[in-house]
């Protein structure tokens, strides 16, 4: 039996934690702001598309 598979020497398997380790305040702050910026960016992009569509419709009418 090789050393690597020896049940005596291998450390006991522990289940992976179900929840991620808590972020420190700076990381948490950066995560929240990044998520907020992504949402604002997405909304602004949708508004640009909407205003473009409104302009096209208004020109046709």
């Amino acid at each position: 039996m090789s050393k690597a598979t020896d049940p005596v020497d291998t450390p006991p398997l522990t289940p992976a934690p179900l929840t991620p380790a808590p972020l420190n305040p700076a990381e948490d702050r950066a995560r929240v702001i990044a998520a907020r910026n992504r949402v604002v960016g997405l909304l602004l992009a949708c508004l640009v598309v909407l205003f473009f569509a409104i302009t096209i419709v208004k020109i046709k009418i």
Partner: peptide
């Protein structure tokens, strides 16, 4: 500065 920013 220490306050947690508001989530979206």
């Amino acid at each position: 500065a220490g306050r947690r920013p508001t989530e979206w």
